[in-house]
């Protein structure tokens, strides 16, 4: 299996172009920090950030902090998106449930995620539980919206084919409704993954101290250690980027039956 050369060069060119802007930004950062264009206390040099990162990695438990964050993220994400798919399936399949619940859900989803924090902190305290609940809510909402849309828009033509082939209710759901909703479900889960990572940081930031990358940033701010803040921000960005790529890869594998449009 050899990849055509033209395809490989195209890919390389794409990667190079994608990297251009970050490199330019890093250079600008370094130049302005070292050249005294900005106060180095507000924008530390790359070198300082690098040494801070190294210190955190070796002397302090950076990997451990990241592990805590990822753990909350993953647990909350799976709870939220799993419940979201089940909940949306119920709404899409049951007329009664749809009529009873959907209007209320549509109202509740308008509430900003951050507005839940006071309630969650009072109901669940400030510990792990509260953080995971917050992350789960963040993943839940986009998953529900997209899954519901996808299931409701199952093609009539194919449902009729199922009718002609005497599909049972279960077969209709498993063979037609769920697969035809898969692209929407994937979009929802992908969004859920992004939201849940944002919410993980939000939870760590707003729900007081505890281990995690959010805690790192708070500590940096309190100690006026901007290099530490930068380390935290960069880690958040990189992890978010990796999660996004991961989701895209899984998505394109699950949806390989679709005609590629690019």
């Amino acid at each position: 299996m050899s990849v055509p050369a033209s395809f490989r060069t195209r890919r390389l060119v794409r990667i190079r172009r994608g990297l251009t802007l970050p490199v330019v930004l890093l250079v600008l950062w370094e130049v302005s920090s070292r050249g005294g264009l900005v106060d180095a206390r507000f924008l530390p040099s790359l070198e300082e950030v690098y040494f801070t990162a190294k210190r955190e990695l070796i002397d302090n438990n950076l990997i451990g902090e990241l592990g805590f964050s990822l753990f909350r993220n993953v647990v909350g994400f799976f709870i939220g998106s799993g419940l979201g798919i089940l909940f949306a399936t119920l709404l899409a399949l049951s007329r009664t449930a749809d009529a009873l619940i959907t209007p209320t859900f549509n109202g509740l989803k308008q509430i900003s995620l951050l507005a839940w924090i006071p309630l969650i902190s009072i109901w669940f305290g400030f510990g792990e539980q509260a953080k995971i609940v917050f992350v789960a809510i963040a993943a839940f909402i986009p998953v529900v919206l997209n899954t519901y849309e996808g299931m409701r828009n199952a093609p009539r033509d194919l449902i009729e084919v199922g009718h002609a082939l005497q599909f049972t209710r279960v077969q209709r759901i498993a063979r037609i409704l769920v697969p035809s909703a898969l692209p929407s479900i994937a979009t929802g889960v992908h969004l859920g993954l992004i939201y849940s990572w944002l919410a993980t940081v939000g939870a760590e930031y707003f729900l007081a101290v505890g281990p995690g990358v959010g805690g790192l940033i708070i500590a940096g701010r309190e100690r006026f250690d901007m290099a530490l803040v930068m380390v935290g921000v960069l880690i958040l960005g990189v992890v978010g980027f990796i999660l996004n790529r991961l989701a895209a890869t899984v998505e394109s594998y699950l949806l390989r039956w679709r005609a590629t449009t690019h």
Partner: peptide, 15 residues
Amino acid sequence: LDRGIVFQEPRLFPW
């Protein structure tokens, strides 16, 4: 199932 049907569009399941 004793009566099959073919439609104008193939109506295949794309997945």
